[in-house]
């Protein structure tokens, strides 16, 4: 493989991995705190992509690239803020009405509810925006690129990667350094003990959902910017891969989830490079099974301790 191709594919993988990483963060947070495989999370991501699409095409009425960098930055700031806040609220509403009543129910009940919510979100988007794929405005011009070691790197891709990195570090800081973050960690470790220590469990879980869904929303915006095309079915498999990423990284571990996301990006891209794209999904899941068999706590998780 030539160096330029290697660099190009590396960059492709970083961009794709950024999207998976952003979705995986929400998965890992929700799983970490209430042990729910939130199957609706992928569809929250999808709704985020459509919210951004609506903002760009209806109120902003944009159809092509925005070449003025200041204007572009302003539009991006607006879109990301609005979508992330809106999706955060959607996440909180879903938690409040679909998951919270089931917190003490059998383990499988919220899992099925999550799938039910996923169907509901898909159908709503299908009815509102139609069932065919929609073209999202390419606000980054396609010519905005530079050369690196023979590879052609787009500013759009660089922006996506840096944004994902920024959000990942911001989340780390939030979970690790703030009072709310500490409440989240303690709730995840032992809900009752946390409650006894004065942590407001409901509020903490709601905040977790807010942040997780907001990040998925950001992933949705990025998806639209990058691919220029969205549809109401994109959430499920993206969510499944992101969940795989979360497990690969060690569930509950935000750094691990991000790394898992990039890892899956790399598996997909390099299976494309070597002519095996139609096997990429099988490869992703095969890696998942192998990792779980040989290192059940995931790549960055702590070793499994025997229950006493």
């Amino acid at each position: 493989m030539e160096l330029s191709v290697l660099v190009q594919q590396f960059f492709n993988a970083l961009t794709l991995g950024s999207i998976y990483a952003l979705i995986a963060l929400g998965y890992t947070m929700v799983y970490g705190i209430i042990e729910l495989i939130n199957f609706a999370h992928g569809d929250v991501f999808m709704v985020g992509a459509f919210t951004a699409f609506w903002l760009l095409t209806v109120p902003l009425a944009l159809h092509g690239s925005v070449d003025n960098p200041v204007l572009l930055a302003g539009i991006l700031l607006l879109i990301f803020t609005v979508v992330m806040v809106f999706m955060g609220i959607v996440g909180v509403v879903i938690e409040r009405f679909a998951y919270r009543p089931l917190r003490n129910a059998p383990r499988l009940a919220p899992l099925l509810t999550a799938i039910g919510v996923s169907f509901i979100l898909q159908n709503i988007i299908q009815v509102v925006f139609g069932s065919s794929p929609r073209r999202t405005p390419q606000i980054f011009g396609n010519d905005a690129r530079f050369d690196l070691l023979g590879a052609s790197i787009s500013f759009r891709g660089v922006f996506i990667f840096l944004l994902a990195l920024g959000l990942i570090f911001a989340l780390q800081a939030f979970v690790g350094r703030t009072r709310l973050g500490r409440a989240m960690r303690s709730t995840a470790q032992d809900r009752e003990a946390a409650q006894l220590m004065g942590v407001n469990i409901n509020r903490t879980i709601a905040i977790t959902f807010f942040i997780g869904s907001a990040l998925a929303g950001a992933g949705g915006v990025v998806y639209g910017l990058h691919f220029g095309q969205i549809g109401f079915t994109i959430g499920f498999s993206a969510g499944l891969k992101a969940f795989t990423a979360a497990v690969l990284g060690g569930i509950g571990n935000t750094t691990g989830a991000a790394l898992g996301g990039f890892f899956i990006g790399f598996v997909e891209v390099y299976s494309g490079q070597f002519g095996l794209f139609r096997w990429s999904e099988a490869l992703v899941f095969a890696v998942l099974i192998l990792v779980l068999v040989f290192r059940p706590s995931g790549l960055l998780g702590q070793p499994l301790t025997e229950r006493a």
């Binding site: 594919q9 492709n12 993988a13 961009t15 794709l16 794929p133 691919f227 095309q229 969205i230 549809g231 079915t233 994109i234 499920f236 498999s237 993206a238 997909e268 891209v269 390099y270 299976s271 494309g272 490079q273 794209f277």
Partner: peptide, 9 residues
């Protein structure tokens, strides 16, 4: 489902 990325291919 329309989610594939063709860039690597």
């Amino acid at each position: 489902d329309g989610s594939a990325d063709y860039t690597s291919v």
